[in-house]
Simulated scan of single mutants.
Amino acid sequence: NVPRIKGSHNAVRSGILAADAAFDALRAGRSGDELVEYQAAYEASDIARELKLVRNVKPLLSKYGAFFGTLLGGIDMQITSLFRGWSPFGTLGHGKTDAASTEPASKHKPITYPKPDGKLSFDKLSSVFVSNTNHDEDQPAHLKLLDPSVPIQVNLPKYGEPARLYCPAGVYEVLYDEDGKSNPRFQINAQNCVHCKTCDIKDPSQNIVWTTPQGGGGPNYPNM
């Protein structure tokens, strides 16, 4: 949710609910069925309650901007807290997906970022190293392309291939020959993936599919 750092505590809570639902299904001999108990457990949990209370904050920010959006979001949260989830706004939507919000590169000026100084800013691969990310080298790549031609033939000329920019781990690269211009190739460094799933959500062509890696590989934050 917007007011809190939801990633950690909601991930732990939902993981516990999923494990409990899977255990109950296996114990009942329903290993091939959908875990219907998980959805019911989620809807009765603190996760659903917290997310319902703040469901309109981000849509209000997107629609009315930082100042008025924050003000209306705060009011809405107070009202929904007092009236057990009821909001005068109902449930607002975002209008369009993150993928559909991506605009052609021709509408924007390229941003030249300063080189990381190693003190306040760091390069992507150094941050990947800190995340302790690891995947077995002999497993199939868990990042799949529905159409391998799309990154170079569609995304690169129209959008500048945004996957190479929005990925925080340097998973996606566009490589060229020595002249830096000819024979562009799309490379996926799946070993670096920190499982943020940005590519699965943001890719304008919806061509990238994130799947669960074999063997439980991925980031490992032992000091959190």
Rank of each mutant, 00 (worst) to 15 (best):
N155I: 00
S81F: 09
D203M: 05
A105K: 15
G180T: 07
G118D: 06
Y113D: 06
P162H: 01
A163Q: 04
C167Y: 03
K158W: 02
D200P: 10
G160K: 01
S127V: 14
V130T: 09
W86G: 12
L146K: 08
P140W: 00
Y176M: 07
A100V: 11
G180Y: 09
F83T: 14
S101T: 08
G216F: 08
D138K: 15
L145W: 04
N207R: 06
S106H: 07
T91S: 15
N183A: 04
W86H: 14
V171G: 03
H195K: 10
N192S: 02
H195M: 12
S205V: 04
P213I: 01
H108D: 09
K119Q: 12
L82E: 10
G180C: 10
L156R: 01
G215F: 11
P168C: 09
G215L: 12
P140Q: 01
L156M: 03
P116T: 01
N189K: 07
A141D: 12
Y166V: 03
E137L: 14
G180M: 10
D98A: 14
V194S: 00
H195Y: 06
G217V: 13
S127P: 04
N192A: 01
P162W: 00
G85M: 13
S182I: 09
C167E: 02
E178Y: 09
S121V: 05
T212V: 15
I201H: 04
S106K: 15
K115P: 02
W210E: 02
V130E: 05
P204H: 02
D117P: 10
Y113I: 08
G118Y: 05
P219V: 10
Y172S: 00
P213R: 04
E173V: 01
K115A: 05
F89Y: 15
L82I: 14
T91K: 15
C196W: 03
H142A: 10
I201V: 13
H135Y: 11
I111Q: 06
I111P: 00
H108W: 14
Q187L: 13
N183C: 02
F186S: 01
V150P: 04
Q191Y: 07
E137C: 06
T102E: 08
D123G: 15
P116M: 01
S149L: 11
T112H: 13
P184C: 05
G160T: 00
H94D: 12
K109E: 11
P110S: 02
H108C: 11
S182W: 09
D117T: 05
Y166A: 03
F129L: 11
V154D: 05
Y159P: 11
D179Q: 03
L143N: 04
F83D: 06
Y172A: 00
G180I: 06
L156K: 00
P204A: 07
C193L: 01
D147H: 10
P88I: 14
A190H: 11
K144N: 09
D138L: 15
L125T: 04
T97G: 14
P116V: 01
A99N: 09
I208L: 06
H142D: 05
F89L: 11
H108G: 08
V150G: 05
H108L: 14
P162S: 02
Q153E: 14
C196F: 07
S205G: 07
N134G: 05
